[in-house]
């Protein structure tokens, strides 16, 4: 399995191909949203909604053999695309790896200017919530 660093490099080069064309970039992010796995209907509830996102984002995580397995969904396709990028980088890794991960690809692909300030805040809230899950599992594993 590639490292968090390598996957970020992959993402950066994919976005580099799109260049400065915002239109293709936004379309690409929306298409990425389609790659998100199906979210369990019974988990689509209030307590799984991430606070701080303008659109609705549901996120759950399981500890599968010591690795964090994330599942997420959103009511908007662009947000789904953003989550799919985060999941691609962080899924099925140990809590330590996730907590230590420096997610520099977001700034490197200039996500702020692509998605605007509102959605950038939402993206930060998603990362925070993903790390919180990792922290909770780490605490449990060390207990």
């Amino acid at each position: 399995m590639s490292s968090i660093k390598d996957i970020q490099e992959e993402i950066v080069s994919e976005f580099e191909i799109l260049g400065d064309d915002k239109e293709s970039t936004v379309f690409y992010i929306m298409e990425l949203g389609g790659s998100l796995g199906k979210f369990p209907e019974n988990e689509r509830k209030e307590e799984n909604i991430i606070k701080g996102c303008q659109s609705k984002v549901w996120l759950i995580a399981d500890d599968v053999d010591g690795k964090v397995h994330y599942q997420a969904d959103s009511n908007t396709d662009i947000t789904k695309g953003l989550i799919s990028l985060l999941i691609r980088v962080l899924n099925n890794r140990s809590p330590e790896e996730i907590l230590n991960a420096e997610l520099n690809f977001i700034n490197r692909i200039g996500m702020g200017s692509i998605i605007g300030s509102q959605r950038s805040n939402g993206l930060s809230a998603m990362i925070k919530q993903m790390k919180l899950y990792a922290f909770a599992f780490q605490t449990k594993q060390n207990a």
Binding site: E23, V26, F27, M30, Q54, S55, N75, T76, D77, I78, T79, I115, G116, R119
Partner: peptide, 9 residues
């Protein structure tokens, strides 16, 4: 489609 997505596009 969500209105946010349409607006962003």
């Amino acid at each position: 489609m969500h209105p946010f997505d349409v607006g962003q596009m």
